[in-house]
Structure formats: structure tokens, C-alpha cells
Amino acid sequence: MEARSKELEAVFIEVEVDASIATDAELARKLAEVCPVDIFATDDGHVAIVRSNLDECVLCELCLDAAPDGTVRVKKLYDGTELVR
């Protein structure tokens, strides 16, 4: 039996970045640096989210520490709560 397999993204975790910081090149670099599982990347000076890594989030909150309060939200899709400063 050959099982059919697909690759799912963001089953457990979604990350939202406020529009006010999305084009901050310095912050984009910082977020990419602090995230231990590479959810953040820089894309031409923009904050980019690497969707294939979202479910690897370890809830360390380092991204929340790095960004201005309220601008990054980590949503736990399995219980409807979110981490935010």
C-alpha cells in the first residue's frame, strides 16, 4: 500500500506581523536572527514568514521580545489563544 501524502503548513501555529513593521529592514534582520526555527526571513528589506517552518515554533517568544509591543502575534491554532506583548 502506497500511502498518498501531502505536506501541510501552519496546522498548529500562525504568525502575524503588523503592517507598521513589515517593511522595517533592520527589524526583519533581527527577527530572522532570533528565531531558533527560522520562521522569519528577510525578503528585500521586508519581513517574510517562512510558512513551511511555522509548525516548528517552540513558543520561545524571542520574536515578541525583538519587536515593538503588539506588532508580532503568535497564534496557537489548536486552542485559539495567542502570544503577544
Partner: peptide, 12 residues
């Protein structure tokens, strides 16, 4: 837990 649940979902 995430890993094993995801495995189920990806295999329908």
C-alpha cells in the same frame, strides 16, 4: 504531539 498529528493529517 504536533508531529504525530500532522503525520495523520498528511496521510488523510
Amino acid at each position: 504531539a504536533r508531529g504525530v498529528i500532522k503525520a495523520c493529517l498528511e496521510l488523510d
